[in-house]
């Protein structure tokens, strides 16, 4: 009897301790629509101006429909999408006179040329804040998803990126708009996705079927496959 009492006291106190720990590490409270926090960035980067649709009536409010992968160039070649090198921003902007004197672009050039007050040395990286983060025990591979959806399936880039990143082309500073929880990933991996070629398409140097069951080909049905469902695919 006493033993249980003692145990429950221990349990309660530990639980209190752990939920306290949970509180302390809880970086972000999820809002109802699962939006991530508003993140303050060193430069308020306007995604909509770069990637957004063209606005015929008010061109200055519309975007330029730049492909996501023009700047996030590592996404199709590596596990991480990467932030574009500063050199890339400058590469275009040094020849775009019209916005050269706007506050954001002036700030941008401070990182390249150094700031007048000497606080920013020339050629320093911009300290962007991470908006989409996964726990360290999750390994997400951008390359695989881009190869699968963009190159194999010819889906529009913005759609493919948007599965996880939301409608970035309407955002200024990007904001997380999906939960990126395990349930979110598994939901999609459970679905039957169209695949284009029988026998799979080479992704990296492996056939797409590598490690999975090859679907039965049935002429009357579209060929589909599910995403990988093994723990080790993400928890390596």
């Amino acid at each position: 009897m006493h033993r249980f009492l003692r145990l429950s006291i221990l349990l309660v106190s530990l639980f209190a301790a752990s939920s306290y720990a949970a509180d302390a590490t809880q970086a972000v409270k999820m809002t109802e629509d699962s939006l991530g926090p508003l993140v303050e960035q060193p430069i308020e980067f306007p995604h909509f101006r770069h990637a957004g649709d063209v606005n015929k009536e008010h061109p200055e409010k519309g975007g330029m429909q730049i492909n996501c992968m023009y700047c996030h160039t590592f996404a199709r070649r590596s596990a991480v999408a990467g932030i574009p090198p500063l050199q890339k921003c400058i590469g275009c902007h040094q020849s775009i006179e019209s916005v050269r004197e706007t506050p954001r672009i002036k700030k941008l050039f401070e990182y390249w040329e150094g700031s007048k007050d000497g606080k920013i040395a020339a050629k320093s990286p911009i300290p962007w804040k991470k908006v989409h983060d996964l726990p360290d025990f999750v390994r997400f591979n951008h390359e695989r998803h881009i190869k699968r959806f963009v190159f194999q399936q010819n889906r529009p880039v913005q759609e493919a990126c948007g599965y996880c990143h939301g409608d970035v082309k309407t955002m200024t500073v990007a904001r997380r708009s999906k939960t990126l929880s395990m349930g979110f990933c598994v939901d999609c991996h459970k679905k039957d996705h169209l695949v284009s070629a029988e026998g799979g398409t080479a992704i990296g140097n492996q056939a797409y079927w590598y490690g999975f069951k090859k679907p039965v080909v049935n002429a009357s049905m579209p060929l589909t496959a599910k995403g990988p469902n093994d723990c080790w695919q993400c928890h390596k």
Partner: peptide, 10 residues
């Protein structure tokens, strides 16, 4: 989210 800095190449 929003805490860690991602440093890119210059």
């Amino acid at each position: 989210d929003g805490k860690e800095t991602v440093v890119s190449y210059v």
